[in-house]
Write a protein that binds this DNA or RNA. Sequence first.
DNA 1: TTAATAGTTAAGTGAATGCTTCAGCAATCG
DNA 2: CGATTGCTGAAGCATTCACTTAACTATTAA
Lengths: 117, 117
Amino acid sequence: MLQQSKLDSLFHALSDGTRRAMVERLITGPASVSELAEPFDVSLSAIVQHLQLLEECGLVKTAKEGRVRTVNLQPGALAAAEKWFQQHRERWERRLDRLGDLLDEEDEKETKPRRKS
Amino acid sequence: MLQQSKLDSLFHALSDGTRRAMVERLITGPASVSELAEPFDVSLSAIVQHLQLLEECGLVKTAKEGRVRTVNLQPGALAAAEKWFQQHRERWERRLDRLGDLLDEEDEKETKPRRKS
DNA sequence: TTAATAGTTAAGTGAATGCTTCAGCAATCG
DNA sequence: CGATTGCTGAAGCATTCACTTAACTATTAA
């Protein structure tokens, strides 16, 4: 089973628009901290704090060379979260299908007396 | 484009294990508030507060009949969040592919310096 | 009518969140 | 060299979070 606390931290990381935008930026390729910060109207410090969170939950890896820290998206990091959707959408859709079948059956029985619940 | 605040609230809703478990429970079918609360070791009040949040972000619909409130999962509610993953995984994978191609070319140049079409 | 059930609402608490400013510090440029 | 760049770390602050308890309302059961 998927680990709860991992999902907690992944979904939490993605629940902030700035962090999502940072992730989206990193899809196009690695970036330095300042490059990452540039589009946003917040202090560099705030960005670094978002970055720490992204790194802690494994979405991102960083490496410092000289005075520049380069940030890379971690391949497969989104997998755990995406998997949650896939699994549950599947179950959900199967249930809706069965429900549809039941309703169809009920339709057919409509003329006959119905069972009480 | 997907709306930011909607994604914020969806991901936030899913970032809590209790709320995810409630959603998972609702996949199996509708439930009353007390039924929903039963597996958890928190007050009914806490569950009601989670429920409000789930309802505000559109994951869930409720209807009160007599003194019982019945909670239903809202079909397609997870779509917005799931879509975010699909879109970005796609872009990310395309980028990794291109990156792979580039690296292959570099490989070939290194081992045998020849032109590539 | 009384009692139990199902849920609602308000107020409060401690911890976490997202941000700021400011004071650094090491790498690099002029 | 000294100045600038790129980042780091700590402290503080307002807000939100997840939760509690407790008092309350409305519906149903005995």
